[in-house]
Structure formats: structure tokens, C-alpha cells
């Protein structure tokens, strides 16, 4: 929203937090509702995608990454990237055992 202003103040207003909270609660309701339906292999993917969206909102807004210096976003990106690389390698290994 008013990115330049919040950059200076290094803060969010009350409103955006309440909006994000409502989004998080809605996503939780969706993930519970969807869990009852069997999409086969897509079920776990759906659950993880929703969890990832929720984490993204918490990181960006609640944890202030959006208004934080760029180096913080780079650090988090690299940390998550290596986490994903590890799990991909792990599953590649197990799939061929």
C-alpha cells in the first residue's frame, strides 16, 4: 500500500494486521474444509500450498519483512531455498532406493 511511508516509519498500521489475520483464519477454514475431500496426491499439495501462503503472509506482514531492509528478504529466501533443495534431494534419493 503506502510503501514509501511505511519504509520511513518502519511500521504497519493496525488495519493491515487485522486484514492479514482475517485472511489467515479464512485460509485455515479452507484447509480444514478441503481436507475432507480426497484429491489423491493433490491433497497434501493443497495443504502445503495453503500453509506456504499463510507463512508468506506472516513473514511479510507480521514479521515486517515487507518493510524491512532488502538483505533480510535475501537471507530468508536463501534459507528457504536450501531447505527446499534438501527436501528435493532427500526425496530423489528415497525414490530410487
Amino acid at each position: 500500500m503506502d510503501d514509501s511511508k511505511s519504509h520511513v516509519e518502519h511500521s504497519h498500521g493496525y488495519g493491515i494486521y487485522i486484514l492479514v489475520w482475517m485472511a489467515l483464519m479464512t485460509l485455515t477454514a479452507i484447509t480444514v474444509a478441503v481436507a475432507g475431500i480426497n484429491f489423491g496426491a493433490l491433497t497434501i499439495t493443497t495443504a502445503l500450498v495453503i500453509a506456504a501462503i499463510k507463512s508468506y503472509l506472516v513473514l511479510q506482514i507480521f514479521m515486517h519483512l515487507r518493510i524491512e531492509q532488502k538483505v533480510f528478504r535475501i537471507f530468508v529466501f536463501v534459507a528457504v531455498l536450501f531447505f527446499v533443495i534438501t527436501i528435493v534431494l532427500l526425496f530423489t534419493d528415497y525414490s530410487f532406493m
Binding site: H12, W21, L24
Partner: peptide, 12 residues
Amino acid sequence: LTSSLTMALSIT
């Protein structure tokens, strides 16, 4: 999730 909200609000 609500506790995360109240935590963020306390900083504002």
C-alpha cells in the same frame, strides 16, 4: 494465529 495478531498489534 490470533496471538500473532495481538503480538503485532502490541508493536504498533
